[in-house]
Amino acid sequence: MVVVGSGVIALTTLGSDAADEVDQTGYAPSITLVGVDPGSPVATGDASVEVQPAAPNATLAVTRYLDAEIAGDYATSFSQLSSDDRRAFATLEDWEVGADDRPRILGYRILDIDGDTARADVELLAFVSEINGVSPASATYDFAIEQQDGGSRLSLIGSTFTPHYPGQDLAVPTAVAWVEAAQRCEDDARERLEYDGNLLGTLGLAESICGAAGAATASVGRLDSLPDPSAVLNGFGEQAAQWSRVVAIQNVAGASPLHVVLAPLGDHWVVIGALSA
């Protein structure tokens, strides 16, 4: 059975080598908040919203949740959650405020409903941000379904989220192009390869290789290949160890080796930092 949500296109896994499974419990606060009993009013400042009845089946629970998240109807998406999930967020207001911390869903395709699990390919708004980290352009959601209140509800605590990232080999030409643009002193060309934020790492590194000789050679690795990854981890958080890639550059006069750090943005990579050895 395939159910398609609004605005969805055919989704493609962009390089399985970088598709890391991420536990969706990271969406919930790490502290225990005041519980909300099923069917009771949910405090939202000066108003209250009644938790909606459970969906009659798993398919409707998933489609109601995804459709509501797409539409920004957070009262409905909140109502599809299990009682444990709702207790974790405590109020609808907390859930609404937390929308910026969840991947922004644009469309979806339900692939399979099997007992207490529903799998969907989801189209997402891709971004790179020091505040909210990285969101892929697409992902596979494995939703856990719980039988509660005479119907089906979603358990995000028991669900998993597998992002689809571009293959890491695509990071190499981006890093080399960034270094070569810096060597040619072409700031505009270099900045087009960067994310929309402040570069992390060695201050003024790009400017320091303006005019430097040497044909760059490169190899790609993970963040732990850096002698000191703290600048990236402090800027983007521990999740950066999963999605970032580091391209080691050799043969640039006066700056070898140097390390270019990249993040996935949709189907390509962008530079988020550069560090000298």
Rank of each mutant, 00 (worst) to 15 (best):
V176P: 07
V34N: 06
V247T: 11
A90P: 04
G211C: 08
L233N: 01
V134W: 02
F143N: 00
N198W: 07
S16Q: 06
L203R: 13
A43L: 07
L111C: 00
V260S: 02
A99D: 10
A240C: 03
E207G: 11
V122W: 01
L265I: 08
D23M: 08
G151A: 02
S155C: 06
A55T: 00
L170M: 13
G150T: 07
I272L: 09
S276A: 08
G7Q: 04
I272K: 01
V261E: 01
I113R: 01
A137F: 03
E69Y: 04
T217P: 04
R87H: 14
E207T: 05
V22Q: 11
Y74P: 01
N251L: 09
L11Q: 15
V122F: 09
S40E: 12
Y65T: 03
R184N: 11
A90Y: 02
V22I: 15
G151N: 03
R184Q: 14
A144D: 03
S138M: 07
R104A: 15
I9E: 12
A253G: 05
R109C: 02
P257E: 01
D114F: 03
Y108C: 09
L14R: 09
V172S: 13
E180M: 07
D112F: 00
I105M: 09
L170G: 14
A263T: 05
S230M: 11
S16K: 02
L200V: 15
L200G: 15
L33A: 11
A68D: 10
A139E: 05
G254Y: 02
V271K: 11
G45F: 03
R87E: 14
I249F: 04
G107C: 02
R104D: 15
T59P: 00
I131D: 14
L81D: 04
A181K: 05
V252T: 05
G204R: 07
A213M: 09
P38V: 09
S129A: 10
I145R: 03
G201P: 12
I272E: 04
V128P: 02
G214T: 08
E50W: 02
T140F: 04
I31G: 07
A171H: 11
Y27T: 04
A277W: 00
R109I: 14
S219T: 10
V3D: 10
L233T: 15
I31W: 12
N251F: 04
T12R: 14
Y108Q: 12
L11E: 14
V270G: 01
V220C: 05
T44D: 13
L265D: 10
A175P: 03
E238L: 10
E130N: 12
L193H: 08
A255C: 01
F143Y: 10
G98E: 02
V128Q: 03
P163E: 12
P227H: 05
S219W: 01
A139S: 14
S276D: 08
R192V: 13
I131H: 13
L258S: 09
L226C: 02
E123M: 11
R190I: 05
V34A: 15
Y195W: 15
I31R: 14
T91N: 00
F236L: 13
D114E: 09
I272P: 07
S159G: 04
I272T: 11
A177D: 13
E186K: 10
L199H: 05
V22A: 06
Q250S: 09
A18F: 08
A28H: 08
F236V: 01
L223E: 03
L203N: 12
